[in-house]
C-alpha cells in the first residue's frame, strides 16, 4: 500500500511527515501517471484556486475520476476538501465532485479569523481532536450518503462518504494521528476488496 500526496503547492510536506511517522510508504504526486502506483491520494491544504488550475492544465481531471472508479481512496484537508466537493461557492468554482457536499470558501472570514478548536469526534471518542482552522471553508450541505464525524458551530468539519474522507481543518498540523489513521483504514478496506 502506497499513499500519494498531491504536491502542487501547500502543506504536502506536513502530510508526508505524518505518513512517515506512521510508517506508510508515500510519494509526492505531480504527474497523472503516478496515480497508477498508489492506493490512496491526499489532497493537502493550500490554495484551492492554484491547485485547481494545475489539475486542469496538467490533465489530471480524467485520471482522477478513473482512480476513483478503480477504488482509489481520497483524503482532503481544507483546500483538499474544497477540491473533492460537489459544489463550491464564494466564489463559485469547479471541483472534482467526488464527495456529495457543498462548501463555502473562506467562510469564517480572513486570516485574523483563523483559530484552533478542540472538539470530540463521533469517530474516535475522547480525547478531543485538536483542529487547526486556517481561512477555512464551511460545509453548508451534506448529501444523504455522507457521514458527519465531527462538527464545529453546528457545521460538519469532518465527513466521510465511501472511500472519501475530508476535513475543513488541518490534522497534519497537529500531533494527533487518528484522522490519518482512519484514512489509512479506508485505503486498506478498499485494497482488500
Amino acid at each position: 500500500m502506497k499513499i500519494g500526496v498531491l504536491a502542487v503547492q501547500g502543506d504536502f510536506a506536513a502530510h508526508g511527515r505524518v505518513l512517515q511517522q506512521l510508517g506508510v510508504p508515500w510519494c509526492e504526486v505531480r504527474h497523472p501517471e503516478q496515480l497508477s502506483e498508489i492506493s490512496g491520494l491526499i489532497l493537502p491544504g493550500g490554495e484551492s484556486t492554484t491547485m485547481l488550475k494545475f489539475l486542469f492544465e496538467e490533465g489530471f481531471l480524467e485520471p482522477l475520476q478513473d482512480f476513483a472508479r478503480r477504488g482509489g481512496a481520497f483524503f482532503g484537508t481544507c483546500a483538499g476538501a474544497i477540491l473533492l466537493a460537489r459544489e463550491v461557492t464564494n466564489p463559485r468554482q469547479p471541483s472534482l465532485g467526488l464527495l456529495d457536499i457543498s462548501v463555502q470558501r473562506n467562510a469564517y472570514g480572513r486570516q485574523i479569523n483563523s483559530f484552533v478548536d478542540r472538539a470530540l469526534s463521533s469517530a474516535f471518542g475522547p480525547p478531543p481532536l485538536e483542529m487547526v482552522y486556517i481561512r477555512a471553508p464551511i460545509i453548508t450541505r451534506v448529501g444523504p450518503g455522507v457521514d458527519v464525524l465531527a462538527e464545529h458551530g453546528g457545521h460538519p468539519v469532518l465527513v466521510e462518504q465511501g472511500r472519501c474522507l475530508a476535513a475543513t481543518f488541518h490534522p497534519e498540523l497537529t500531533e494527533d494521528r487518528r484522522v490519518h489513521q482512519r484514512f489509512l483504514q479506508l485505503v486498506e478496506a478498499a485494497s482488500a476488496r
Binding site: 503547492q9 501547500g10 502543506d11 491544504g45 493550500g46 490554495e47 483563523s114 486556517i134 488541518h170 498540523l173
Partner: peptide, 14 residues
Amino acid sequence: FRVKVGLAEMLKGG
C-alpha cells in the same frame, strides 16, 4: 502563533 505559521505553511510551494 500556530495559526499564523499555519497560513505560511499553506503558501509553501507557491
